[in-house]
């Protein structure tokens, strides 16, 4: 008590209390996590997450006995970090995120792969020569997001086509499309099922037509959005994980079923109010082809070969120092 009267001692004690309080907030969050399930998406609510929204709005999670809160993602969100910190129990992450996390020891497990074909593609105007071979990229100004997975994919395409960086011009991509509209860049990265649709519609008004460069056509398979959870969740609550996966995939199947189109569009409109129904319909149609490219591929199938290829690409570009054996994190529950 005598010590507490001294200002320096009081400061030390107060600092200790504040630190303990901060620490307890994080721990409490992790402990309380078991009561309600948080599902952190990778991006904002749009057509790319239609199945997740459908499962939520049409009570499919509830029917499976789960209380799930679907949370929008964004550039500043990282589902894998949230899993580890206990802020979320399930999340959506791209393969490069999963592989990076594994290379740093994160206990992440992939339980379903949503996109069988990566939605990330490049647009270019059809008054430009078509890109039929990778060598057709020579001499063009190509938009890439430095540090983003479009950079990784484009560099893989260039390496595959034997194109030297001096033979092309790379253009740093930002959030708006002005450089593409102003023709400062010939080729611009977009998500085929969302941005690709509204940009096509926008340029069609100016009598311009777009073409798409799909890396998949040139044999580059870089896995996109997948559903992840933590090792701890699988070990401690395996039934919850199974039920979650079943409910989620049921949501996706129902959302993409053409018979439910009206219901699906109404669901989407609740969250994406700024997009017209015409555009949403087109976005939904393209999303369908990326999630289930053929009827014999089940929604949610984990394409192990594509995951291994993604790991090889990342290792070849020095994005991971050593192999992580990504197949260890893939679980077909």
């Amino acid at each position: 008590m005598k010590c507490f009267k001294k200002p320096t001692c009081r400061k030390t004690v107060m600092s200790g209390i504040i630190l303990t309080w901060l620490f307890s907030i994080v721990v409490a969050d992790a402990v309380n996590a078991g009561e309600k399930l948080n599902y952190r998406l990778k991006w904002l609510f749009n057509a790319s997450v239609v199945g997740d929204l459908y499962a939520d709005v049409h009570h499919i999670f509830t029917d499976h006995g789960l209380d799930v809160q679907v949370k929008a993602g964004g550039p500043e969100r990282d589902a894998i970090r949230e899993l580890e910190l206990g802020h979320a129990q399930f999340g959506v992450a791209s393969a490069d995120q999963v592989i990076r996390a594994m290379s740093k020891g994160a206990p992440v497990i992939v339980i379903a792969q949503l996109f069988q074909i990566n939605a990330l593609q490049w647009i270019y105007r059809d008054d430009q020569p078509p890109i039929k071979r990778l060598s057709d990229l020579k001499g063009r100004t190509i938009g890439i997001t430095y540090g983003g997975n479009d950079e990784t994919i484009m560099r893989t395409l260039l390496a595959k086509g034997g194109i030297n960086q001096k033979e092309i011009t790379l253009f740093s991509v930002r959030y708006d499309y002005t450089p593409f509209f102003q023709r400062k860049a010939d080729i611009w990265p977009v998500y085929r099922n969302t941005q690709g649709v509204f940009l096509s519609a926008k340029l069609a008004k100016e009598d311009e037509t777009l073409r798409f460069l799909d890396p998949h056509d040139f044999g580059v398979r870089f896995v996109a959005n997948s559903v992840v959870t933590s090792e701890q969740m699988i070990a401690k609550h395996p039934q919850t994980v199974i039920k979650f996966k079943q409910a989620l995939l049921q949501g996706w199947r129902e959302a993409l079923n053409p018979a439910n189109q009206k219901k699906t569009l109404n669901t989407l409109k609740q969250f994406d109010k700024d997009t017209s129904e015409t555009i949403l319909t087109q976005q939904l149609a393209i999303t369908r082809t990326l999630i289930q490219p053929s009827p014999d591929i089940k929604i949610g199938t984990i394409d192990t070969a594509a995951w291994k290829e993604t790991e090889q690409i990342m290792q070849a570009q020095g994005l991971i120092k050593k192999p992580v054996n990504v197949e260890k994190a893939l679980r077909n529950l």
Partner: peptide, 18 residues
């Protein structure tokens, strides 16, 4: 120091806190 305290206190991987 606070970050390391959290890292080792909560046993977080290098992905969350290096």
């Amino acid at each position: 120091l606070l970050l390391f305290l959290l890292k080792y206190g909560l046993q977080l991987s290098d992905y969350v806190i290096p």
